[in-house]
Design a protein around this nucleic acid. Structure first.
Lengths: 347, 347
DNA sequence: TAAAAAAATGCAATCGGTTACGTTTACTTG
DNA sequence: CAAGTAAACGTAACCGATTGCATTTTTTTA
């Protein structure tokens, strides 16, 4: 209890009758130190129970081997996959992750950004909160040339890179698929239009309609937070529509809303995909469980997280230049399942 | 680019012609400093764009306001809820979270524990990896009196607290429920028996059997990692059993295995719950989507995370004594859904 | 109003490593 | 074998904030 003092490199130095500088170098495998003394040092270190003090080191060397991760919410399947991917990459290269969530609140996001800055993270990985209008709050990072990588919910910026998928293209593909199944009145359940992921999906959807000479109908475009409840409410909305105005397909910007919408419509007696086809986005676990299985867009959160983190770390290590790359687009695949197969179902 | 130097308290001090000590105190709202100078200091700080350097502070003050979080896997619904709860609690009290995953590998867990120690986290929140036999690797923490809180997958230890649910009781309730529905041959899909959560569930299951004069049958107890694949394989196992030896109910230690087992059995033509009833554990989102909906044990990951973190922080702030409390048990509720309602289904 | 008490501020050591630069020791080479 | 080079190690000044103790300033009290 009393002897709370830490074992430091000075203790090792004294023990071996050498200088602390040598100990420091020896512990970091500096080639300047001879093999024998290096061995003596590491031996003495384990013997005395030495554990390096990271921030004493960070203070002097100006690097923390820590990355800041800022996400809207921690508890979604997609985000936890992203984190898993980041953690793998970080761990592999000796980095640690400080993780915080903004809960879709810009103010919290701002505070968290500052905390990350004060903790002097070597780089920042961020997915913007729903209502962040600009990235003014990231200025401290840009000013100090601390690399920032956006992922998923990105924001164009000259000095940073974005990692994600081509949401426009993906939505275009999905919508086209629905059209190819004979759907003519395709509804879109979209998210907050401040965020690229949702505007892009919306645009891809509209473009597909246009390219196939289908009219975009304002009343078939709902914006929500895409929660379970939002899905259920969308179903209510659909059921309340006059029969002639009802959609014959729904493309939801995420699987959660799609699934809960399906559940409610099924409960109301609609048949899927015969009466109304469905497509989601994310390939969430629930999409493989709902009946009929949900057609969706599959893309690996883990890959996004891994890529973003690896990229950031490579930049920090000097092997890649972050500022040269503006965006990294990962592949996303249309996974066709029963929920959208009108023709097969009919046949 | 050139002027990379940070703005420090010395810059503020020089600017105001006062000492750095006063600046330091002023910034921390030390009552020793007069109101006016305090204001001058904070004004100058924002004016000069000062941002405190956390680890210079940590080095001297010996506290990092950082908690280490070590989990088996980041990407599960339960775990991400736990993290969300922890982040809320931490953020509320000005703490940050360093998060790492062991991927069920003790060696990785050991390395991570050491990293956390080297980063001098103020406390550790840990859920053990599946194959950790002891907690020897936590010794550095115990030796230095750095508080450790176990959650979910806990391990008894005199100087630390565990936060979780009563798995024994919960499993007992679930099993009893199945029995009350008339099930007589109840299979158990269990997890690694090194971990309390799984042994306790197994024991609760056995006790319920015993209390209702049902025999525990070794062939109806499968141990696996409870993955999707494990669930599917369990179904195969069941289908390969002679008709007379088939279970009339399955109690799975998690929802994932339960759901994938159900899917496979349904595909093979079995009716649920008529031919075989099902109960899971976790109240995962998929349990509300599978048909029939899965009976399961609901307990809040968010509450577990929040409680564990709050408890740890209170201890750090001196308002509670961690060493006095040995375990905190949160409530878990049996959620009865169609997958286990034989009587109703039959009626 | 002088002395005592309280409040506000300054001094300087300290936390535990890192690193530029200087010094010693070992090894080459003409 | 002397001189020159390379390898190995030491000295000491940092990094930026905190804090025990001393000192100055202000307020209170006698």
């Amino acid at each position: 209890m009393a002897e709370d003092r830490e074992v430091t490199i000075y203790d090792i130095a004294k023990y071996l009758n050498i200088s602390a500088a040598t100990v420091s170098r020896g512990l970091k495998n500096n080639p300047m130190i001879s093999k024998q003394t290096r061995k003596k040092i590491t031996d003495a270190a384990t013997m005395l129970g030495y554990q390096s003090n990271t921030f004493a080191s960070s203070l002097r060397s100006r690097q923390t081997l820590t990355l800041g991760v800022l996400v809207p919410r921690l508890n979604s399947h997609f985000m936890s996959s992203v984190l898993a991917g980041m953690e793998n990459a970080a761990n592999l290269h000796g980095y640690n992750l400080i993780i915080a969530q903004s809960l879709e609140d810009v103010d919290k996001e701002k505070r968290n950004v500052l905390t990350m800055y004060n903790k002097r993270v070597d780089g920042l990985l961020i997915s913007l909160s729903a209502n962040a209008v600009d990235i003014q709050h990231l200025e401290p990072f840009f000013k100090k040339q601390i690399p920032v990588v956006f992922f998923d919910r990105v924001h164009p910026h000259a000095d940073s890179t974005s990692v994600g998928i081509d949401n426009y293209e993906a939505a275009y593909k999905i919508t086209t698929h629905l059209i190819s199944q004979g759907c003519k009145r395709i509804m879109h359940l979209g998210g907050n239009l401040l965020r690229n992921v949702y505007t892009d999906r919306f645009k891809g959807y509209k473009k597909a309609l246009k390219d196939h000479r289908l009219l975009f109908v304002e009343s078939l475009h709902l914006v929500s937070n895409l929660s379970e409840q939002a899905g259920t409410e969308a179903a209510r909305y659909i059921l309340d529509l006059p029969a002639a105005e009802r959609p014959d397909a729904v493309f939801s910007a995420n699987d959660t809303a799609a699934v809960y919408c399906m559940l409610a419509l099924k409960a109301a007696g609609l048949r899927i995909p015969e009466d109304i086809a469905f497509a989601g986005f994310n390939n969430d676990p629930i999409s493989k469980v709902i009946e009929p299985n949900l057609t969706t867009m599959n893309y690996s959160g883990e890959a996004i997280g891994n890529t973003a983190a690896t990229y950031l770390i490579n930049h920090l290590k000097g092997s890649t230049d972050l500022y040269a790359t503006n965006a990294i687009t990962l592949r996303a695949d249309l996974v066709i399942r029963a929920s959208s197969l009108k023709k097969d179902a009919a046949g």
